[in-house]
Design a protein around this nucleic acid. Structure first.
Lengths: 111, 111
DNA sequence: AATACGTACAACCATTTGGTTTCACAATAC
DNA sequence: GTATTGTGAAACCAAATGGTTGTACGTATT
């Protein structure tokens, strides 16, 4: 029985879960190049404003974007730090495969 | 020269979705170091054999592991190629942020 | 031959997800 | 002021997810 003491498994769950949707990946891409309001984002997708709002909320919950009020708008900014975190995770897995890292378990139980 | 990441949206969805679960990430980790049977995997988790079987099926559907029959067992092997695909995806996002990649859109449209 | 083991698969259940519509409200525009 | 725009939040719905138990069947073991 693998007992998971580390709570932040949930955080990794949220990051990958948030990236597992094409619309959300597109929102991340767009907000990495520069901020955009929720309605600006919503204008380009074939779904309701509320649906896009929910996607943004999922990304925000995963720490992949941040919301910054400006007037009546909410500017969405992509958060590269969280992406780097996901990158490091995948890098660690590749490290396992290559056998370069000997005792990686602690790292993968997720910092 | 532009190397095209030829991955469909659905495929990327499945990869990240599969990685969005701690048990499945653990299975990937374990099968990257060496093959393991489904029952060997299941023995270490606090859930039914059938549940682990389903997790393996999700990973297999995402191409993160492969199943190879040997006798009455099914040996599960981790698949580093698929992990590399996910890595390249995240690398591309980081490239956007850094502004180092100029024409990345075609790459990210993940056709 | 009989038994145990490893896997597959179906049926079922509770919760989550991804979408919708609708209503409310603050900020801007006219 | 009134109207419009941008957002938030609730209620609702169908489908997917993650778990369970039970059954069936090929493969080893004895």
């Amino acid at each position: 029985m693998v007992v998971r003491i580390d709570v932040s498994d949930d955080e990794v769950d949220r990051i990958f879960r948030a990236l597992a949707d094409a619309t959300r990946r597109d929102i991340v891409r767009r907000t990495l190049t520069g901020p955009a309001s929720v309605s600006q984002l919503a204008a380009t997708y074939d779904m309701s404003f509320a649906a896009v709002q929910k996607h943004v909320a999922v990304l925000e919950g995963a720490g992949l974007v941040t919301k910054q009020p400006r007037g009546r708008e909410r500017l969405i900014h992509g958060n590269p730090e969280t992406l780097q975190r996901a990158q490091r995770l995948l890098d660690a897995y590749e490290g396992i495969w290559r056998g370069r890292i000997s005792r990686l378990d602690a790292l993968l139980e997720d910092d």
